[in-house]
Design a protein around this nucleic acid. Structure first.
Lengths: 151, 151
DNA sequence: AGACTTGATCACTAACGGAAACCGAAGGAG
DNA sequence: CTCCTTCGGTTTCCGTTAGTGATCAAGTCT
């Protein structure tokens, strides 16, 4: 039965083509997707897309991020070539982060994603309320629904 | 000192404005961002953006996803009003998932994000290789670098 | 009856994420 | 000199979550 896991087409990815395929599990694109499809990465890139900023500035701007996640995410983004880290050996060390051209390309897509989330927020919220209120109501004949198995 | 955490501007969000602000921790947009900034959500929405598909079809198409994560992610997306779930009480139950107009809007942004990831994959990979090889090389005077504390 | 299909769920483990402590260098107060 | 502070982190502890494999329920075919 588990053999079925491997019968799916591996798609072409590690072949000569320079283009990745996010749907194939072993394609590096999948790792990259997992990295950039991250709450903190998106917010950091969005901010740095508007200009360089110091560590403490990012922490102040991104409400609710912990030092650990901020430095960890910044290091990932630096490793991926999306942000630059500049250390100023001043009195107390001052570290400035900026975005690379490669990262700037990505920011454009992310911006439209955030824009969608901010404008459609209320639609999503009402959909959630509708979904949460649908269960246990006047539905009587749906034997194959999720509620039928929950016992 | 910890009071500083709360001195940051809460931005306007739960006010009269219908528009969210992803940078404020208590704005619903943040939750929505966390939901859609997810590997599996992105891949599912991308596929459903091309047309409806059954559970097993999605599982076959998205290489490496488990049944649990697939049904779990699909239910989240359904709750958020991004996908529709249609149960066909046929011989073995057949469940078809399709995208909503709201979800279709989002797919456009996601597509450009994936497109970036697939085309820039090699750039990111070479940046990663450069970053991983930078440590322990001919750097002699960088006392404030990360390597100084790693001992 | 036994095996198989489809979609969902359970038990369990590995990894993630947050709070807070600690660090290391430099500067100032007492 | 010792204590305390700032900046940019790292480490530790621990709860939550993601992820895997096995299982389940219903129904059909052999």
């Amino acid at each position: 039965m588990q053999d079925g896991t491997f019968t799916s087409p591996r798609h072409l990815c590690e072949t000569a083509s320079q283009r990745g395929n996010a749907f194939s599990a072993d394609c590096p694109t999948r790792q990259i997707l997992d990295r950039i499809a991250d709450k903190w990465s998106v917010l950091i890139l969005m901010i740095l897309g508007d200009g360089a900023m110091r560590f403490s500035g990012l922490k102040r701007r991104i409400d609710g991020v912990s030092q650990k996640m901020l430095s960890q995410t910044l290091r990932s983004l630096e490793r991926d070539g999306l942000v630059l880290r500049h250390v100023e050996p001043s009195v107390p060390v001052s570290v400035t982060y900026s975005i690379t051209p490669l990262g700037q390309e990505l920011v454009a897509s992310l911006r439209s994603m955030i824009d969608w989330a901010e404008t459609r927020m209320s639609d999503v919220l009402s959909a959630q309320r509708a979904y949460d209120g649908r269960d246990g109501a006047s539905e009587g004949g749906m034997a194959l629904q999720r509620s039928a198995v929950s016992a």
